[in-house]
Amino acid sequence: MKDRVHDMGGRDRFFGPLPPIDPDEKPFPHEWESKAFALALLANRVSGANLHAFRHAIERVPEPDYLSGYYERWLASAEILLLDSGVLAPGAVEARARRLRGEDVEEPAAPEAHKPDMPSGGGGNLRTVDQPPAFAVGDAVTTRAEMRAPHTRLPAYARGRTGTVTALRPGHVLPDTAAIFIGEYPQHVYSVDFTSRELWGDGAEPATVTLDLFESYLKKAE
């Protein structure tokens, strides 16, 4: 699967000078951003989505829109979720915006909603997993080299790499399946330490990178 814009870790094309840190930065520098924030959270509810479907929608925002800003992509993903679930018709937001601007445009009729219907094990994303964990602290594990799911939480830079399990975290809803409404399939999650040399090669700055990885992303290292 082609690496998409959101998967930024270690990718030179995004390297550049860091922005300044403003210690007093407000949560919403522009007023519309506060509205976009609230609307995106509500669009999740209204469309019957979940956190993973929301992230997946953000990842499907076309690259120029994605890179235009954080709440720009939240807003675009809210529209994607509402279109996906049939709450809004394609073109509805654009038509309404142009009307608000005073143009005389026709608006599409609201379609019939068809929200996803996925059983949920409860609120939040932490779940009890019945089967015992496959790995223990100290185990050497290798991450999958290939990802097949359209949404996954294994970054490209950490695929096919070997690290060491340092902690067992609470079981989680599996993002890969929840994002496309197949089911929660809760799994054990492990903190795995990777050396920078394993990730980036011999010349890497010395460091340890820790990722929290789902059991199905991992196998015992050979």
Binding site: H30, E31, W32, E72, L75, A78, E79, A97, L100, R101
Partner: peptide, 11 residues
Amino acid sequence: PALRAEALESL
């Protein structure tokens, strides 16, 4: 984006 947010909200 400000107009887009307003449009979405009104819908």
